[in-house]
Design a protein around this nucleic acid. Structure first.
Lengths: 334, 334
DNA sequence: CGCCCCTTTGAACACGCTCAATAACGGTGG
DNA sequence: CCACCGTTATTGAGCGTGTTCAAAGGGGCG
């Protein structure tokens, strides 16, 4: 079966090729879902399990009066459910945070494969364990952690989970969730999430720009949030790996074939607003100054700028590195 | 295998006799655990699953600085885990809220039985589903519900779950958790739980006395708490049964062979403090007044008093009905 | 009888919320 | 290239829910 399917699941569960093939054979069809549409709706009977191939989704529940709680985020490679039980009524909905592509797996096919492939059965049980564990950690957050800790903890969780699937570069990742979404997840108001983001920024722990989050000091952010990666059940975490180092260089870069690429298009205005006078003098050294179509600015070879950003000499600019297109050879105009 | 084992599991999962026997054959040993001791400790490898035979337990997690969050309550008939995955490190602890008796089940034996008994496999999957669903509902509570709603919702959850196993009589159940425990579960302070209990009492929705909770108006309490029993995955709930009526008369009374019986010993002082002048005149009609060993008081045949209380003519006294010993023939001295 | 745990109550305070206004940004159509 | 629109982010002020600290009372249990 197609590469694009086996890639996400391979990252998640360490299956052999033959098991991966068996798993992929259970896929019935693929769906493309628009951002903010529902993948599954509460109250409906569960008819199949979906594997997220690209994009983000979120589990949520709603009260009659409209209050909404996000119960967890689903990243590429995640399953909407981890046990092939057919027909029960869903107690929560799953919505698409971004446009997304997912593969639908019938319960029956998966159950059958589980019988002949104990490795898959075990992988699913492990998935269920991890999902459940993350839910418990969220309970811990909502019940005991302060606003700052909650936000920091969520960022750490996403940092690790995204790192696992190769979607963190230079300590920076894309966060398609709005502050309103984060508020619904953290049990806070939108305004408060904004303030807590500002606090983390002032502490020098994170930097944000246009749906990108840069973690300046992972260790310190984790300490502040009482975050310990054990509960995610990553082998890297258990063997003492720490942060980026554990999933960095060795892995292939993320295969961004989803809608994220849309927000990767560099926008002149956005980039320029992030830069200060000091940065422009540095840029002048890197490239050749000139006048771009965005007005007065600088044309810098993408590869050079990217290398410069990733050197992390300038922390704030590193946060921008994710904004550049994948084609490093092209010239970036700023 | 012994009745005392099959009874709780039979209530939980609707298994045939032969399946129940198979399930019971997986039980390795029984343990007796003192209140506030741990059944399982976070960080240790999972070596077996425990079935609670009597008493209450609770899942919890702790932060380094001591903050503690209760993640859920385990009632008689509940399993500490619902998937026979061996050897992973536990991400949370399970503590004994009361003295408790539990049966230990080895992962291997259970996994083997699951292969030959699909009904058991399915029952376990259903258990996992229900546990997970309750966790999600708790996330909803902690994230979105106000203090009053949270407390009300928890009481409703316990009312239904206890009713399912026959531990609710006359809309009244034993609640061994202290207000401090409830606070740790609801993400509130002990003081606030106390105040919210007072609020529910003033609203005439519940009544409390010595570890007993009486729900005066289930429907109204559920409405106040945005509680809908669907998520518990009880067939009674799904078929439209409502409250006590669904699990009442037909079922055998709870077999209270646990430490709850300790708090069932009627204490003169306690009972008398709950009564008012009007009650004493009623008591005089029911029994014969006299002088008990607790000072001036009344001797009332237990059966008569119990019947009186259960008639629910006097709501407040109904709350006391659970305080009487099981031997209805004996005379209660008040 | 005395100790200790649990509950209850009061007062001051803080975290987080609501309301409201403004700014920033992306997308769209002219 | 620009103006406009809807969404998202930011900031301020006032307020309310829930917290902390402290003290007193009730009840079980040794």
């Amino acid at each position: 079966m197609p590469m694009t399917v086996s890639a996400p699941i391979a990252r998640l569960v360490d299956l052999e090729d033959s098991d991966q093939d068996a798993f992929c054979s259970t896929i019935r069809s693929r769906r493309r879902i628009s951002a903010r549409d529902d993948v599954f709706k509460e109250g409906f009977a569960s008819r199949y399990i979906s594997l997220i191939l690209s994009g983000w989704a979120y589990r949520y529940k709603q009260l009659e009066d409209g209050r909404q709680q996000i119960l967890g985020f689903l990243l590429p490679g995640d399953l909407t459910e981890a046990s092939p039980v057919n027909g029960y009524l869903l107690d929560h909905s799953v919505g698409a945070l971004t446009d997304l592509i997912c593969a639908d797996i019938s319960h029956e096919a998966l159950a059958t494969v589980c019988l002949s492939r104990p490795a898959i059965q075990k992988a699913l049980a492990g998935e269920a364990l991890a999902m459940s564990s993350i839910q418990r950690e969220w309970l811990m957050s909502l019940g005991q952690r302060t606003g700052t800790e909650r936000l920091g903890h969520l960022l750490c969780e996403l940092y690790w989970r995204l790192g696992r699937i190769g979607s963190v570069q230079a300590e920076t990742f894309t966060l398609p969730a709005t502050q309103g979404d984060l508020a619904a997840a953290l049990g806070l108001s939108t305004v408060h999430v904004c303030r807590k983001f500002a606090e983390l920024r002032e502490l020098g722990l994170v930097q944000t720009s246009w749906k990108k989050v840069h973690i300046c000091d992972v260790a310190q952010l984790q300490a502040l949030s009482c975050f310990r990666p054990d509960y995610l059940y990553f082998s890297e975490a258990l063997t003492g790996g720490h942060g980026w180092a554990a999933h960095g260089p060795g892995r292939p870069p993320a295969h961004e074939d989803d809608i994220f690429s849309r927000s990767n298009v560099p926008r002149c205005r956005r980039l320029r607003s992030e830069l200060e006078a000091a940065d422009f003098s540095l840029l002048r050294e890197l490239g050749r100054s000139g006048t771009s179509h965005c007005g007065a600015g600088y044309s810098v070879p993408g590869a050079i700028l990217k290398a410069y950003c990733q050197s992390a000499l300038n922390c704030r600019m590193a946060a921008l590195s994710g904004c550049f297109g994948r084609n490093e050879a092209s010239t970036i105009k700023i």
